[in-house]
Design a protein around this nucleic acid. Structure first.
Length: 1121
RNA sequence: GGGGGAGUAGCCCAGUUGGUCAGAGGCGCCGAGCUUAUACCUCGGAAGUCGGAGGUUCGAGUCCUCCCUCCCCUACCA
């Protein structure tokens, strides 16, 4: 017998109950066993950073991941079910530093790199455990590690990384040091999630880098690059893009006195005063016009087009020259006395190394007049483009700042000062020494460190790159094979062509990124991350890249013992030295760690055991499906995977990529704790329930941002409650009726007593299974949710509402059983269809709807197969179409009632109905249903000849438009006016043109002046005349309704018997009273006022007079039926 | 600066290869109705110069050109 179902479900409680049950019964393990050996469906999880608890935005993507895995499992697919954690990189370091109260890299060095790296690992394990628990709470089925074991490993690592620990793997226990067990997480012998810090992951990246080196694509760049002074490291191009923010800087205009033109100065504008100490040249545009202006005693050179924006106060133009004539002028720099400047200039230029360099004006094509003075301050040591220009001219370079963004020695009073903070002091200094001209705040977009938000500086550094290859100035289709082979970027593009991008604009975006991307900067001057296996010989300049741990052991000439037994991380790996292949000198690894996207990009290889088990890799590569949030990933995870797979295999790492947008707070702003619009995952799960959350996510259009909040959740929950209540309705009536499903748990063959309504809902659910399957196969979850939503609507507001009487107090047992059987079959099918999206509600419904002993049916909805094939026999499209027409008829009738002021409770004598051809026969069987629903006694069909309708011709424009052209307006006017002639052959002549039968549609349209409504040839007319009999019947129903309301107001139970007093019942209503009493469960009915005071009376106005109603509950009174 | 997307009712937005009173859907508002599974549902209503201006066409929300606004991607602008 079914468990009772509350109409207000405790969804959260139900979720916890099922989580416990799945765990106890090992439901997920049963699913995996059941599908083992099935056709593969390869999902590759984009690693979540194990650095904090997961947020509701993660739950969006994880809902997709889980629903597609579950769906494919229902199709019988064998899957890997492997979650991934991203472990290495600066974001973990920053948090560990914060916990320790560190402010700079020196603090880490002093603390000890080994201990620091260990803390990073511990943090990852902490949050991997936490996120595992949260994901499980979301209902996400994966091959999870036991969170307690992760914490045990973490604690062992903290206590002593060298201690020997035993841990249970899928194929038995495994014993190793704590450190090495952590390094082996996710490897086949341990199973579970993959971790990008694992030995295998790091080792394969080494292999990838060695392969790049073999092809000559790895190089060391010396350049002026964006640098975060807090983190003490440079940023790659992909990281730069994350952190552009508006920022106000000082817009400082300074004067550079010209050496050979006494009294005259250049005016130069900069937003970074700290770079003035590194000034080497002033650039002008050769083709721009420059003028000399006079202001009082002073005389300035400035771009003519910049006068308005740059000059302060009145001035006089006294002279004009093209920029080309300014080139070569010498000027006095603002910090020429600094030792660092003197020293740099002493070496002269590349072309004239013997004579000391002096500041001068140079030509630069990039100079413009939109901002500044048209004369650009050039500091090759403190700006990327400045560096390029300086390099091309062979100018000296002054690198003013160190890792922490402080001035080096040699900068006098500036030395040791933070460059960014020195602006004010520099302005004061310049003012004092006569270099100052003007200062105004200036707001612009400026790059910031994406991790810590610090404004970036440009700094001279050596970094390591993978060359992405030339950009050819020609269309991609015209490239020769040689050009292609020489340029990695175009090879990646070819791989991109082979991938299905959803939404489709992703394809263009990725190509656009690939075309414009710079070389991949892979080095980072930090501690926790991939140890770059680059060995750069200081003696001879040769460098080599080691392709794996094995190769390192072979090549090691010292330090191996210090590294052996450790994961490939700093500091231990740094100890190993190899012999330089160039000069034989002993060479150590460069201290840099790797770009973290290398870690995530290698997973199509590392997690599939590319090296250890090629057969396994071939079975699962390429992945069928990945899904991640679009923003950022084109240049991050997608890009890294594409680049690495192209280098290693020159083939696609995944076949389909499904992207989704960004999650914001309900107010449309990013979620921010201090803005009060932030919702934690745990809170959301326990307050709204995860099925509600999953429904909200699944329903969302993936390319649009989600505005997430409690209101949105309420909307989603409302939809689910409708589903729940259809189910609760079934159980409410099936229990007392003693109806039970067939023991085998299978849907019955069509029931003999099945009504058109039964056959309709079964056809609908069969169609739902097929269309939802189709939408999910096509990766369209939002459309799937819409289909389900519409179905729930149909089930609740049409099938259940109209069939209600068949379930309770139905004298016809066969009809009642047909209804139960139909609704049961429908609900079980629906539970299976929603199972991937709503795993909890679905399983709760399914299990409760199972036959008493379970029969042959699987014990959980998640062990069932997708039901399309089983339901196919119920499909009846013609009936569905007819039902749609019937529903439209009901709508039209309701409209007419509203217009005529006739309540639904008032029965009407007749309804006339004209149907367009197609559904006519099918609708015939629905006439009774329509009559009941619109409360009319008879329905009469009317045809074209009826006096109630006119015929109207609707020319089918798409068909005739091309043929008729300019004649169209005349034809349409004729059609509208009804000026047409029907020909015997079915053709129609109008507006002087004859249209073939298939070029027009003949529709019925109401003749003006009748009480009718119409829609696309459907015409409904109601008989508004009320006979006394009809009125009495209407009054009876009105009375009945009033009594029911009173019962509800009195808070009576559904089956409570009552005693009823009625005063003033009109004589015409008398014949109906027995029926009223039956419907309202009134055992005693008295005409007249009650003696005593049983309850508050109400008065209802009937057409025959007003009636006063009083009732009282009869506890356990005798039944009447 | 370059590339892409979007602008349709108070709000979120559908709108196919151009096809005739501009509307699928959701939220909200107003009115009415229905209802002891569903504080739910149904019907109706108000409300829009389809961002602006031209053009192509018998016909443009849809195609073309220019302009305005917003968003995203991208960029070395001091």
């Amino acid at each position: 017998m079914f468990r009772p179902v509350p109409t207000r479900p405790d969804l959260v409680g139900l979720e916890h109950e099922l989580l416990g049950q799945w765990r106890e019964r090992g439901t997920f393990a049963k699913l995996r066993a059941q599908n083992a050996g099935g056709p593969r469906w390869s999902f590759l999880d984009g690693p979540i950073t194990a650095n904090n608890p997961m947020g509701v935005h993660h739950a969006w993507g994880r809902t997709y991941k889980d629903l597609f895995q579950r769906f494919h499992a229902m199709l019988g697919a064998d899957q890997r079910w492997q979650n991934g954690f991203d472990c290495q990189g600066l974001w973990v370091e920053v948090n560990v530093e914060r916990d320790l109260g560190f402010t700079s890299k020196r603090d880490i060095e002093a603390f000890g790199i080994a201990e620091f790296v260990s803390l990073c690992k511990q943090r990852v394990l902490t949050y991997a455990a936490r996120q595992t628990e949260q994901s499980t709470r979301l209902g996400m089925w994966m091959d999870w590690d036991d969170p307690d074991e992760l914490r045990r490993l973490r604690d062992a690592l903290a206590a002593d990384p060298g201690q020997v620990v035993t841990i249970q793997g899928p194929n038995g226990p495994l014993t190793d040091t704590a450190e090495m067990l952590v390094g082996r997480l996710g490897h086949p012998e341990l199973g579970g999630s993959y971790y990008t810090f694992s030995n295998e992951n790091n080792d394969l990246i080494w292999g990838f880098l060695a392969e790049c080196h073999r092809r000559g694509w790895i190089y060391k760049g010396h350049d002026s690059m964006p640098w975060c002074p807090r983190c003490g490291t440079g940023l790659s191009q992909m990281e730069m893009n994350e952190g552009y923010q508006d920022r106000e800087d000082p817009g400082l205009t300074v004067r550079f006195p010209l050496v050979d033109r006494p009294g005259e100065s250049l005016l130069v504008w900069t937003t970074t005063p700290w770079t003035l100490a590194a000034n080497v040249a002033a650039a002008v545009g050769e083709n721009l016009e420059y003028v000399r202006i006079r202001q009082g005693e002073a005389s300035y050179w400035i771009g003519k087009g910049t006068l308005k924006q740059s000059v302060v106060g009145p001035f006089q133009v006294v002279e004009s020259k093209p920029g080309s004539e300014l080139v070569g002028w010498r000027y006095a720099g603002p910090f020429d006395d600094l030792p660092a400047v003197r020293e740099a200039f002493a070496g002269g230029t590349r072309d004239a190394p013997d004579s000391p360099y002096e500041h001068r004006v140079v030509a630069w094509s990039e100079v413009g007049e939109d901002e500044g003075t048209g004369i650009v301050h050039i500091a090759p040591g403190a700006g990327a483009e400045d560096f390029q220009l300086g390099k091309s001219l062979g100018l000296p370079v002054i690198g003013p700042i160190d890792e922490d963004g402080r001035y080096y020695a040699g900068f006098d009073w500036l030395t040791g000062r933070e460059a960014a903070a020195a602006a004010e002091a520099i302005v004061d200094d310049l003012e004092r020494r006569g270099f100052f001209y003007h200062l105004a705040p200036y707001t612009h977009r400026y790059p910031h460190c994406w991790r810590c938000g610090t404004p970036l500086l440009f700094r001279l550094v050596d970094e390591w790159f993978i060359s992405m290859g030339e950009v050819y100035d020609q269309p991609r289709e015209t490239l020769s094979k040689e050009q292609l082979d020489a340029s990695l970027r175009y090879q990646i593009m070819e791989v991109v062509d082979e991938i299905r991008w959803i939404p489709s604009f992703g394809y263009e975006r990725e190509l656009d990124w690939l075309l414009n991307m710079h070389d991949w900067m892979i080095s980072k001057k930090r501690y926790w991350g991939l140890a770059l296996p680059i060995y750069d010989c200081t003696a001879c300049g040769t460098f080599d890249v080691i392709g794996g741990r094995g190769e390192l052991r072979e090549r090691a000439i010292s330090g191996w013992e210090a590294f052996d037994g450790h994961t490939p991380h700093r500091p231990y790996v740094d100890e190993v030295a190899i012999a330089c292949p160039g000069c034989g000198d002993s060479v150590r690894r460069i201290p840099d760690v790797g770009n973290p996207w290398l870690d995530a990009g290698i997973v199509p290889f590392s997690t599939l055991h590319y090296r250890e088990d090629r057969e396994h890799w071939e079975r699962w590569f390429p992945a069928d499906f990945i899904t991640e949030s679009f923003p950022g990933q084109f240049r991050n995870w997608f890009y890294a995977m594409l680049a690495m797979s192209t280098v290693l295999r020159r083939e696609r790492p995944f076949k389909t990529i499904f992207g989704y947008a960004t999650l914001f707070g309900e107010d449309g702003r990013p979620m921010h704790k201090s803005w009060g619009n932030s919702i934690e995952f745990d809170e959301a799960a326990e307050r709204m329930g995860v099925d509600v959350m999953r429904w909200l996510y699944t329903s969302a259009r993936p390319e649009d941002n989600i505005l997430f909040g409690w209101h949105a959740a309420d909307t989603a929950r409302r939809r689910l409650l409708v589903l729940w209540n259809a189910y609760a309705f079934f159980v409410t009536y099936a229990k007392p009726a003693g109806w039970t499903p067939p023991a085998d748990g299978r849907a019955p063959e069509a029931h003999d007593a099945a009504t058109p309504m039964d056959r309709w809902i079964l056809s609908r659910v069969a169609g739902l299974a097929a269309t939802a399957e189709d939408r999910l196969l096509d990766v369209d979850p939002a459309a799937t949710a819409r289909l389900i939503d519409t179905f729930i609507e149909d089930l609740s507001t049409w099938y259940v509402r109209l069939s209600r009487r068949r379930f309770s107090r139905n004298a016809d047992a066969a009809d009642r059983d047909a209804a139960f059987s139909t609704l049961h079959t429908t609900l079980v099918a629906l539970a299976r269809i929603v199972a991937p999206i709503l795993p909890f509600i679905a399983d709760s419904m399914y299990q409760n709807l199972l036959p008493e002993d379970g029969g042959a049916a699987p014990e959980s909805v998640h062990l069932t197969r997708w039901p399309t094939a089983e339901l196919a026999r119920f499909a009846d499209p013609a009936l569905e179409s007819a039902m749609a027409t019937a529903r439209r008829v009901v709508d039209l009738a309701r409209t007419l009632r509203g217009t005529a002021g006739l309540r639904m409770r008032q029965p009407l004598a007749r309804l006339w109905l004209a149907l367009p051809g197609a559904d006519s026969a099918q609708v015939e069987q629905l006439l009774t249903l329509i009559a009941e629903e619109v409360n009319v006694k008879h329905i009469e069909r009317i045809d074209d000849e009826s006096s109630l309708v006119d015929r109207r011709v609707k020319p089918l424009l798409p068909k005739i438009g091309k043929r008729l052209g300019a004649a169209i307006p005349a034809v349409m006017t004729a059609a509208r006016d009804g000026a047409f002639e029907l020909n015997p052959d079915g053709s129609v002549t109008l507006g002087g043109v004859t249209l073939a039968p298939d070029e027009v549609e003949i529709q019925a349209t109401p003749r003006p002046g009748t009480a009718v409504a119409h829609d696309e040839g459907l015409v409904v007319v109601i008989d508004t005349e009320l006979t006394p009999t009809l009125r009495a019947e209407g009054d009876a129903r009105e009375l009945q309704r009033a009594i029911q309301d009173l019962r509800k107001d009195a808070g009576l139970d559904l089956d409570a018997r009552i005693e009823l007093w009625l005063e003033g019942v009109p004589a015409e209503v008398e014949p109906h009273l027995a029926n009223v009493a039956r419907e309202t469960l009134a055992d005693k009915l008295t005409r007249g006022a009650p003696a005593g005071d049983p309850g508050l009376p109400v008065t209802v106005e009937l057409s025959g007079g007003s009636v006063r109603i009083t009732l009282r509950s009869l506890q356990g009174g005798p039944g009447v039926e």
